[in-house]
Structure formats: structure tokens, C-alpha cells
Nucleic acid binder design. Structure first.
Lengths: 339, 339
DNA sequence: CTGAAAGCGCTAACAG
DNA sequence: CTGTTAGCGCTTTCAG
């Protein structure tokens, strides 16, 4: 069986409380007993039982983290940022993936609440279905924050990329390089606020430069839609045959940018001379593709860090903190897919 | 404050045990009281406190999952398989990423033990540093299993891809298509058993076909090595200038295959006619690259499922189960990077 | 500086 | 079918 405080106490002929205090470096304990206790604890291989501690202190030292997707085109960097920060500050992470399914998202939250997480970090599904559910969470006295995307209808704070800025920069760059008919593939994420922001940045850049060609493609049917890359590939194939074909593409993520690249090449166009392409995400492999991909690099790791810091800071304050609304500027990375 | 059993009991004028039993559908409770209890619990918004339950039952309903990497070239599919299976069977997942650092791996395991996880699923760092640590875990009565890779020195079960088979198939295919000088990029993962298995498959295929050209590149300095893609890119550049240049590449993962593709194209070679390339992993984007990538598709999702099932089955048996040693056959996916 | 005692919310014997 | 009782391992008053 596992070693308990009781056993250490018995062995040493002191009380449980003394052992407990010694182990936690309470100032009200003599250095000698503290050392004796610690030595024996180490020797007996004592690992504190956090479950018992949690029951007593009403703190679990666990944070819940829920993403809406996981996969090779979804950068795990937010997770990494969250994880490292949480770990460094002494917290563990209960994690789950909603797979873009509102019901699953609710189940995960409820499961995590039952496990008494101290806080919740969520990359929410872009759906109106859980709005009232999230509102009901606010009544609980539990710090909660959105990352990567957020729901404007709910009074929950968030840390996201400055998507308007990123898109505006990317499209402005395309314009500056002489591209005139810039198409925007918003695709599967069209329904979410953050994607809308990117589209808004795209539109603003066009407007500020008096360009009239403006084409945005959405596909909101999340369930039935084909995978993003394929969707973008097929879409691009069609558009290249249009009367006034695009001479550049702003894709809302790298996966869809790659679909477009492939379609252009197959149709015999040259990238970047005939058609320029910029993505969003800056995947690791982007740099070493046959035509390396220009892209907007999101501060994903940093988003994770900020979110955890906010949660843990609220935990350490007596009164609930105001919701955080933080937006971090992304960086445009230019490579070979634009001239 | 949160609703407790006590409060529901008081409200209804029954005992806590009755409420507890009713909520868990104990057969020893009348349908009427059960319904009354459940109705009130729902109305009061009762969420069971799993911490208290855990302390009592000595089960937390939480599994620990530790990976050695997270990122866009690392398929999150094992995690997805683990997560879905765990969730379906009523378990939550405490997750962590060791980032290929043995010290961090130990810390995560220790943290998870303190949180009393019911089982541990680990994609271990390929390092000898934690061998005695893992051995010491075996003394605990805790189900534990490796996924994706394993440590042959330790008596812990595993679920992995049949790496020998996958490599053998891939290289045999290259040979069958007429490639003769096949280079193997083992790269950063060279130190681990699973990578060695792939190399063994490569060698066996060469031997079975009487090919004498045999070149394997390792790079075991995990800490200092440049990122895998770049490593592979630079390596390939050099090899293309060698006296007897390779006419095919078997790369131990897709990221490194992409580095090689890029190097070949820059040097003016045609893929697949001058040089054929096969990777390992079958990343989502592989299908839509400018030259779509032939690759060995690992059963990552399935690996996660099997691992969780084994853990949960051991939990439900009185005696400890024999370590599972399961290997699942991968599938060769042929695309344009091979002729 | 240390000990005794109570209790976090739940489950499980045991008794009725 | 239901209630009483004890206790999981820890922290935290309150006494000394």
C-alpha cells in the first residue's frame, strides 16, 4: 500500500499534523523535526495524496483544457503553452477534445466540473448551441477563459490572435506586390467570429486600396463538409476556370492554402508569378514545401501562456477578476508562394 | 456553494445513503424514491463531487497520458483515440508532454501519481535515463502501458505500429518499382527501438533483393540536433552530390521526407522519375502537396483505443494482467512521390 | 513549537 | 428497501 502521513508520524513518534506541516515548510516547525520528517518521507517514498488534500482544501490543482480539434494541421502550440505554464506553476491539466461537437463540448465541461477543476480554458466550438450553457457556467465561481476563438455573445474573457490585423497585413502585402484579384477562402471556419475577423481584414485591405474584385467563400455546414483541404482544392479548381480568374488567394488557414496551391499547379499556373498564395497558421512544414508557403504566424504558444496566467492569477485573488479580452498581434512570414 | 448529497437528503427527509444509492441506480432502492431523488437533484443542479468519491473508493476515474511531442507534424491521432475511448468508458484524461526530456517525463509521472490516476499511458522518451524509474513504477499496483514506442529494457507492455513490417513493405515497393540505391533517413529518432525496427525492415528488404547500396543516417544527439525537417533537407543536399547518388529515399517520418523532397527539387531532380521518396506517418496534408507523398500510414487512432481498453480491462480484473505486447500492421499509401 | 480533534463529501458495511 | 455509522488522507482550527 501507499505510504500515508499517518505512517510517517507513527514511525517518528509525532503527530500527523506535525508531519503535514513539516512537509509543507510551515514556519511553525523546528528545523530539526522538519529535516527528520523530510528525510524519512523521502526514504519511505511518500507521495502526498492530492485527492485527500483537495477534499480538505477545496482546490484540486487541476485545470481543464478543451480544444475543438486535434490533428496534424492543427498546431498543438496552444496546448504546449498551456501545459508548460500550468506545470511550472504547479498545476496539472485535464484535457479533452470536442471535435467540433457542441454536445461533446458540454459533456467535457460537465465531466471536468465533477472533477472539481480549479479553472477552465476552452477553445470553443463556433456554434450558438452552447451559448446558454456557457452563460450558466458564469454563475459558478470558477475562472474560465476562451483561447484561439471566442463567443461574442458570452461574457467570458479570451486570448486570441489579432485576426483582423493579420488578415489586413497579409492582403495588403499581396496588393503591394501587384496582385489585384484576391480571392478569400474562409471555408469551414466561416461561421466563427475569428474567421469573420480575418474576412473583415481582407475586405478592409481591399477597400483601402480601391480594389473591386472581392470574393469570399464560406462553407458553414460543419458536419457534412468535406475535409478543409479538399474543399479548398475543389473550390480553387472551379474558380480558376472563371471568366475573371483570381491572381491571388488569401486562405484562412494553411491547410486550405495547400489545397489551393495544388489546384493552381495542376491547372498549369505558376506560383507566385501567375498566382500568389498566403495562408494562416504558419505550420512547421511550410518552410520546406516544394513552394514554401507565405503565411500569418499566430502566437499560439503565447496565447496558452497568457490564458493560464490569467486563470491562476484570478485564483490567487479574493475577488473575481474582470474578464480578460486580449488580442495578440501575429506576424506575416513571407516565402516563395508570393512574389 | 455547491449542492451536496446532504442537502438533497435534508430537503427530502431521507438519509444521505439513500440519495447516494438512488443516484447511482442501486437496485436496492424503490423506484419512487429514486425518481424523487433524481428529480430534485437535477432541479438543484447537483454535480457529484468526484474528489470525495475518489477518496472513498480509491478510484479517481482519471487516466494519465504522456506524449513525448506535440506539434503540427506529430499526429494527434493517438491522443484522439485515447481520449474518445476513455471518455466513452467514463474516464477523464490528465495529459502532459515531456518534450523529449526525461526529467520532465519523470516529473509528469510523479505529478500524475500524486493525483492518483487509475492508469498511465505513455509514449516514452527514447532514452535510457528513465529505465530504472519505470522499473520502480512496476512495484506499484498501477496499470501502465506504452504507446507508439516502447523500452525493451522494461517489463511494461505496449501497443505500437509494426514498424518492421511497414518499412519492409515500403522499401520492397521501391525496389519493385526499379529503384536501386535507396537511402534511409533515420534521423533524430535513430536512438529509439521503433526507429531501429524501421531500419531493420529497410535492411531486410535490401538483403532479400540482393541490393548492395545501403546507407542509413542517424543523428542521436536529441538535444542539439536541428529540427528534423531541416536536418533531412541538409543531409539530402549533401548526398545528392555524392559520387553514387541515391535514386530513392525511405524517410522514417513524413517531415523528413518533405525535407528530402525539397532538397531534390532544388537540385533539379525530378520526383518520382529521378528519385522516389516514401515517408512514414501519412500526414493529412500529404495527399494535397504539389507532389503528393507516398507514405506508411500508422494505425495511430487504433493504438490509442487498444491501450485504453487494456488499462480499463486490467482495472476491472482482480489480478494484474500480463503486460500486453501488441503490434498493429500499418498500410502503405502510394502517391506521386514514387513512380 | 507540537498535539488533539474535527471535518471536507462521499460510499459501504452493517443493522434493521 | 432504508438508516446509522465509520472512515478514506489530509489540513486546520484550537489548545497547550
Amino acid at each position: 500500500m501507499r505510504v500515508t502521513l499517518e505512517q510517517i508520524a507513527a514511525e517518528l513518534g509525532v503527530s500527523r499534523s506535525t508531519v503535514s506541516r513539516a512537509l509543507r515548510d510551515s514556519p511553525r516547525i523546528s528545523k530539526t523535526t522538519r529535516d527528520r520528517v523530510k528525510a524519512l518521507a523521502a526514504q519511505m517514498g511518500y507521495i502526498p495524496n492530492d485527492v485527500a488534500r483537495s477534499l480538505r482544501t477545496n482546490r484540486t490543482g487541476v485545470l481543464g483544457f478543451i480544444t475543438q480539434a486535434l490533428g496534424d494541421t492543427y498546431p498543438g502550440d496552444i496546448l504546449r503553452g498551456v501545459q508548460n505554464t500550468a506545470l511550472n506553476r504547479g498545476y496539472c491539466l485535464l484535457s479533452g477534445c470536442s471535435e467540433v461537437n457542441p454536445g461533446k463540448e458540454r459533456k467535457l465541461v460537465t465531466d471536468f466540473l465533477a472533477k472539481n477543476v480549479d479553472g477552465l480554458i476552452i477553445a470553443p466550438v463556433a456554434s450558438s448551441k452552447n451559448i446558454s450553457f456557457f452563460r450558466s457556467l458564469l454563475k459558478r465561481n470558477l475562472p474560465i477563459i476562451f483561447v484561439d476563438r471566442h463567443l461574442p455573445e458570452v461574457e467570458i474573457g479570451y486570448v486570441t490572435t489579432d485576426n483582423f490585423f493579420g488578415a489586413y497585413e497579409a492582403v495588403s502585402y499581396l496588393i503591394q506586390r501587384g496582385y489585384k484579384r484576391i480571392l478569400c477562402i474562409a471555408g469551414l471556419e466561416g461561421a466563427c467570429f475569428e474567421a469573420q475577423e480575418r474576412v473583415r481584414g481582407y475586405r478592409q485591405a481591399l477597400a483601402d486600396n480601391d480594389l473591386s474584385y472581392e470574393k469570399v467563400f464560406f462553407e458553414d455546414n460543419l458536419e457534412a463538409a468535406p475535409r478543409a483541404i479538399q474543399y479548398s482544392y475543389e473550390l480553387m479548381k472551379r474558380e480558376l476556370e472563371a471568366e475573371e480568374r483570381p491572381d491571388a488567394v488569401f486562405a484562412i488557414n494553411d491547410a486550405m492554402a495547400l489545397g489551393a496551391v495544388r489546384a493552381c499547379l495542376e491547372a498549369g499556373f505558376d506560383i507566385p508569378n501567375d498566382i500568389g498564395i498566403i495562408g494562416f497558421d504558419n505550420l512547421e512544414i511550410g518552410e520546406y514545401l516544394p513552394i514554401s508557403l507565405s503565411s500569418v504566424q499566430q502566437p499560439k504558444y503565447e496565447i496558452g501562456v497568457q490564458a493560464v496566467n490569467w486563470i491562476l492569477d484570478s485564483l490567487n485573488e479574493s475577488k473575481a477578476k474582470e474578464p480578460l479580452r486580449m488580442t495578440i498581434k501575429p506576424k506575416l512570414v513571407i516565402r516563395e508562394s508570393t512574389r
